[in-house]
């Protein structure tokens, strides 16, 4: 019961902040809303028994990635966004189909609720969760793990090359 109450509170915060992200016209307000979304998602991960994911959600996403966003917004002195010609396709075909897709997915999930059952895990299965993830990462998923380190290296070099001031 407590799980359900916490889920509804943080799901409501999450959706409200996501709507605020779309409604705000200044990028810095959108960035702060996105941080709220990520924080409430971290609480939902804790409810699901995923402590490691909740921790790196806060540290990597809300900490590192969003600081990068806020830093770029301040560096470029990004002001209120100007409203130029609205795309006809986006407003009259894209948005109705997105809303229809969301309604269809939520409706079908609620319709077949009895077949999927409960997602909450018992507290005993989360003990040693980080240890088990480390065993998986450095055992079964060792090759993908090493490939992502190469990816990060390439991304660092690409970011430096792209952001470097040209000679002209």
């Amino acid at each position: 019961m407590l799980h359900l109450i916490l889920f509804f509170i943080f799901a409501a915060v999450c959706i409200a902040a996501a709507i605020n992200l779309l409604a705000q016209s200044h990028p810095i307000n959108s960035a702060l809303s996105l941080i709220v979304v990520m924080g409430s998602l971290a609480v939902l991960y804790l409810l699901l028994g995923a402590e490691f994911v909740a921790a790196i959600q806060i540290i990597v996403y809300a900490g590192a990635v969003m600081v990068l966003f806020v830093f770029v917004i301040m560096l470029l002195n990004a002001g209120t966004e100007e409203h130029t010609g609205k795309s006809f396709v986006a407003w009259f075909i894209g948005i109705p189909s997105v809303i229809a897709l969301a309604a269809l997915v939520v409706y079908s999930l609620l319709l077949h609720q009895g077949q999927t059952g409960n997602a909450s895990v018992s507290s005993t299965s989360t003990i040693g969760s980080v240890q088990e993830i480390a065993k998986l990462l450095f055992g079964k998923f060792l090759l993908p793990f090493e490939v992502t380190s190469v990816l990060i290296l390439i991304a660092i070099m690409g970011a430096v090359v792209l952001a470097k001031r040209g000679d002209n």
């Binding site: 799901a11 770029v72 059952g117």
Partner: peptide, 29 residues
């Protein structure tokens, strides 16, 4: 206990809000 469908529904709603933002916002950030 929270049903799995609630989590999936929240995930779908958040994804669609992201698509909506991608379509209607004009600022690249």
């Amino acid at each position: 206990m929270v049903p799995l469908s609630y989590y999936l529904g929240l995930s779908a709603v958040l994804f669609c809000l992201g698509v909506l933002g991608f379509l209607i916002r004009r600022s690249i950030i």
